[in-house]
Design a protein around this nucleic acid. Structure first.
Lengths: 155, 155
DNA sequence: CGTAATCTCTCGACGATCGAGATAATCGAC
DNA sequence: GTCGATTATCTCGATCGTCGAGAGATTACG
């Protein structure tokens, strides 16, 4: 392969990244949320998919916010009805967060819809082709992950 | 192809998106900038690559900020030496923005380094394989772009 | 028990963004 | 040329998201 092809793909990837961000921004705007709120809802949905219920602290780790900000964040989402606070019965210091049905529906409508469209667009590809794409995505993700984790203490 | 493969690829894409965001966040942290500042520098660099010099107003359109915020943004970047303000000679209302060498070097070091690593990781692929990846990226980008632009007035 | 550790919340401060309006420069009609 | 309308940027005051410090409540452990 040529460096030319590789550079083109890198640029395509960046453009795709920008457009994906726009999808998030659009969802946020439609629902009167900010970027962090959306990231939080996604984190809670992802956790739910894994069968866990996030606590306030875990959510803070997931979206990289301090406890004071998490309190404000949860206040916002609870006020508009996207979230419920519940004291954990086992450990009553903890606050368990549960998404409301309205938030779940909104999320599925927006992001689920996108997932369906993406799936449909992949209908024209053979399994072999998608295997190549998958390998490429995994390789690129590995490189990017390594890059973003490099020399974490500013050495 | 199966829906299973498609869904996996969609998830991989999302993960890649998250990691790319982390690269940006890391660059910002290393240089004491926020996300918007980085997006602004990238926009100015991209424009320079196209042979244009951005004005304050154009930059605001590029990063979706109002003029008051652009003024503050440029103040920040100028204060730390990443940017220079220059009055446009033809139209003296305009403020032309030019990146300093230090910002250019920092950007090339961080993002150029990543680009090199990505290119290297693609060395093991044939041109045919990369052509498949490129077609796939273009298709997915088209779907995502359409999705983020849909029904712009909340219909 | 009692002391330390953990989890969330409150409070005050700071920074990024915005709307409204001010200032300055350009354009267009006459 | 001159004057009003338009364009480009900046100033000011307000709002909102985030944070550090520390308080309050609960649990863990000796």
């Amino acid at each position: 392969m040529s460096d030319e092809s590789a550079r083109e793909l890198a640029l395509l990837l960046r453009r795709l990244n920008v457009e994906l961000d726009a999808v998030t921004a659009r969802f946020a705007e439609l629902h009167g949320l900010n970027r962090t709120d959306v990231r939080a809802l996604v984190a809670i949905m992802d956790a739910a998919r894994r069968g866990e219920a996030l606590t306030a602290g875990r959510l803070g780790e997931a979206v990289d916010l301090r406890s004071a900000s998490v309190t404000a964040l949860v206040d916002r989402l609870e006020k508009v009805g996207h979230l419920r606070r519940t004291r954990d019965a086992q450990d009553r210091r903890r606050v368990v967060l549960e998404m409301s049905d309205s938030a779940r529906v909104a999320g599925h409508e927006h992001f689920g819809g996108l997932a369906r469209e993406l799936t449909a667009a992949m209908a024209g590809y053979t399994e072999d082709e998608l295997a190549v794409v998958r390998r490429w995505l995994e390789d690129m993700t590995a490189v990017i992950t390594r890059h973003s984790r490099a020399q974490p203490d500013g050495a």
